[in-house]
Design a protein around this nucleic acid. Structure first.
Length: 699
DNA sequence: GTAGGGTTAG
């Protein structure tokens, strides 16, 4: 092996490292243990050249290994040593292929392997397992199969490591059955092989198979280790298999395995996904070290349990603990911001992503699109979408859904068209999004055509949600009778949601008969919501059947169903304020009610007339007026008006549908106070501006 | 000299 000197600065004095007397006798220990930086390595290298020790191939290999594998950022150095070797042997190739696979690029590793095949160096079992790993990373099934053939031909098959990487490669490339065949064909299945097979099922989300294989391990008595348990716990979480999960949890406690951070993280994740967030939190709190994955798991646990405020609180704790969030953490954080309508926090997240150069992965991009859409900033959603390096059906669906709920039905359909031109196949959720676009935009014929096309052209079996969307499209457009017949002719049993949709249309179009029937159906299917009775009561009120209206409300009370209190949120300066209707315990009580009073006075002067038909029926007219003027939405808007500078857009999210009076009032407020007001109700957005609303009074 | 495991979206 011929060697060329690596450029070093001649002016630099040699450090003590290179003058250690025993250096020639134990070069390996010296280099591996003492070189902490590229600079150290550089000096050892210089010394080796000077003393001609580098002529010893073992020493060169050790040097290479230090640069390529042990030091974090010395790949260039390793490459330059490598390129100066005349005839690298198998060992040298192995070092390079392995380090390229992990550190630089599996593709480079593969190209080097090709070069190796043209050389005299013979691949051994180390080479083959490394290159199979590279194939996994590249999802290069074809190449992996070729290596497999080579392995069989050369008889490396009985090597445990090679077998494992083979299973791993097939599983990663989605060829689970082949992976299983390799696994089943092993003469001796070591625990490592079982773990690889489990990992394969995990990668392909075959959670049932993970549990099945684990039971088989128990039955055959092959034993298991911490890696096995980590996989099985993850599967238990996805399957909500608390029984097995708890069994493993007990095992972990009994065997003092709590120092294993990955294992405990999967335990935390399992408890959270099985709905036991408190238990998850207890384990999380008791961890003696928490890395970014542990924090992310707990944050996502809260967000999936619909405890988004706690998710954001924990995110703040994470920052206080100086653990840097990654792309995955931010997905859960953004989801929580979306649910809460926490625009400021979410915007900060995007700023952080840019500043810290986090990768805009498909998941993260999709979470951002959804977050902005759910905060009513659909332009920002589009901007994020356009910046994403790669998109998939999830990102397109999020965008289409966002456009639909923000009143841009036509835009949603345009993106749906564009998506198909880009050869991204819509799935059943995409169709829920486009159908809802048609419904929000009042596009009846488009909706009918899409529904047919979904079945005929895309082979997607309509689910209850698709039928529900069709009922919504027809009902909102006033085609109540057609919607009713549509439900009657459904091939699957309609659920309460479908009837509730029809009931809401009956309210909008004052159809008493079908409204009554809809409520009957809802009652026969599930415990009705307070809103169901209120809709029917309001239908009666709207056609002057006051007695009936009161009767329905009494019925509701008799059954012990309370009216869900209206609740509105507004985020000001990163703080979320919560208001309830007739709230007597809200923050800044007097200030809020005074502001509301002034606000109502000013819009009345501008011509607003209270709409009290839907208000409490037993009340006198002036009481009704007072009652509607204290709806949570009005309190939140009034508070927003006095707490922000003129011209600032107000963003409100609320738990119920916007009522007719609040809708009228907010239109007027937007004009009188010259503000844009964005209201997110339980299923869509209202962008109020200059006295009108993006929904065109159609919601 | 080699591996396998934990968190994420519509």
């Amino acid at each position: 092996m011929a060697l060329t000197a690596f450029p070093i600065s001649p002016a630099k004095p040699l450090t003590a490292i290179t003058t250690i007397p025993q250096f020639p006798h134990n070069p390996k220990t010296l280099i591996l243990q003492q070189c902490k930086t590229t600079r150290d390595l550089n000096q050892v290298h210089a010394h080796l050249i000077k003393t001609r020790l580098l002529l010893n191939p073992t020493i060169t290999e050790n040097l290479l290994e230090s640069a390529a594998i042990l030091l974090p950022n010395a790949m260039d150095y390793a490459l330059s040593i490598f390129h100066n070797l005349d005839e690298p042997d198998t060992l040298v190739y192995n070092i390079m292929i392995r380090s390229l696979t992990y550190k630089l690029s599996p593709l480079e590793a593969f190209l080097l392997f090709k070069k190796m095949q043209e050389s005299s160096a013979e691949p051994d079992e180390f080479t083959l397992s490394s290159i199979l790993k590279a194939c996994s990373k590249l999802r290069a099934l074809r190449e992996g199969e070729q290596i497999h053939a080579h392995i069989v031909k050369c008889g490396f098959k009985s090597n445990g490591f090679v077998e494992n990487t083979l299973i791993h490669m097939y599983a990663t490339c989605g060829e689970l059955e082949v992976a299983r065949r390799v696994f089943d064909g092993l003469p001796e299945r070591a625990r490592m092989a079982w773990n690889s097979m489990l990992a394969g099922y995990m990668k392909n989300k075959c959670w049932d198979e993970v549990v099945k294989l684990f039971h088989e391990m128990l039955k055959l008595g092959v034993g298991f280790d911490e890696v096995t348990l980590t996989s099985v716990l993850t599967a238990c979480g996805r399957l909500a298999n608390l029984e097995l999960g708890e069994w493993i949890g007990d095992y972990i406690e009994a065997n003092r395995l709590k120092g294993n951070i990955a294992l405990v993280t999967s335990l935390v994740d399992m408890y959270a996904k099985c709905g036991q967030v408190e238990t998850a939190r207890r384990f999380f709190d008791r961890m003696d070290r928490r890395d970014v994955v542990a924090w992310s798991a707990m944050i996502s646990g809260y967000s999936q349990a619909n405890r988004c405020r706690e998710a954001l609180d924990l995110f703040h704790d994470m920052q206080k603990a100086n653990v840097d969030p990654n792309e995955v953490t931010m997905v859960s954080v953004l989801y929580s911001c979306a649910v809460l309508g926490a625009l400021k926090t979410g915007k900060w997240v995007e700023f952080y992503i840019k500043k810290e150069k986090l990768k805009l992965t498909v998941n993260l991009g999709t979470a951002l699109i959804d977050f902005y859409a759910k905060c009513g900033c659909i332009d920002s959603s589009i901007e994020v979408f356009n910046r994403m390096p790669s998109t998939n059906v999830f990102s397109w669906t999020a965008l289409i859904q966002g456009l639909a709920s923000n009143g841009q039905g036509k835009g949603a359909l345009e993106y749906f068209q564009l998506m198909q031109e880009k050869n991204i196949k819509p799935n059943n959720v995409t169709f829920i999004a486009v159908l809802s676009a048609c419904s929000h935009a009042g596009l009846v014929n488009e909706g009918r055509n899409l529904f047919t096309s979904m079945i005929k052209d895309f082979g997607i079996e309509p689910r209850i949600e698709h039928y529900g969307s069709m009922v919504d499209i027809l009902g909102r457009a006033g085609l109540i009778e057609e919607a009713y017949q549509f439900i009657k002719n459904m091939p699957i049993q309609p659920n309460a949601v479908v009837w509730r949709t029809l009931l809401a249309s009956c309210r909008a179009h004052k159809n008493v008969e079908i409204g009554e029937e809809s409520l009957k159906h809802i009652i026969s299917l599930e415990t009705p919501h307070s809103g169901d009775y209120i809709l029917l009561s309001n239908i009666y009120a709207s056609v002057d059947r006051r007695e009936d209206a009161i009767r329905v409300r009494d019925q509701m009370r008799e059954k012990g169903i309370e009216k869900a209190p209206g609740c509105s949120l507004i985020e000001l300066d990163g703080v979320i304020y919560e208001f309830f209707a007739e709230d007597k315990a809200c923050p800044h009580l007097e200030e809020v009610y005074n502001a509301t009073h002034d606000m109502m006075k000013r819009i009345k002067e501008a011509g607003y007339v209270p709409y009290t038909t839907d208000a409490r029926l037993d009340a006198e007219e002036d009481e009704k007026e007072a009652s509607v003027s204290h709806h949570s939405e009005k309190l939140a808007i009034a508070f927003g008006l006095i707490r922000t500078l003129p011209g600032t857009t107000l963003r409100i999210s609320k738990n119920l549908r916007v009522c007719t009076d609040c809708h009228n009032a907010t239109k007027m407020i937007s004009k009188v106070f010259n503000r844009q007001i964005v209201v997110r109700d339980w299923n869509r957005f209202h962008h109020f501006k200059e006295g009108s609303c993006s929904c065109n009074d159609y919601w």
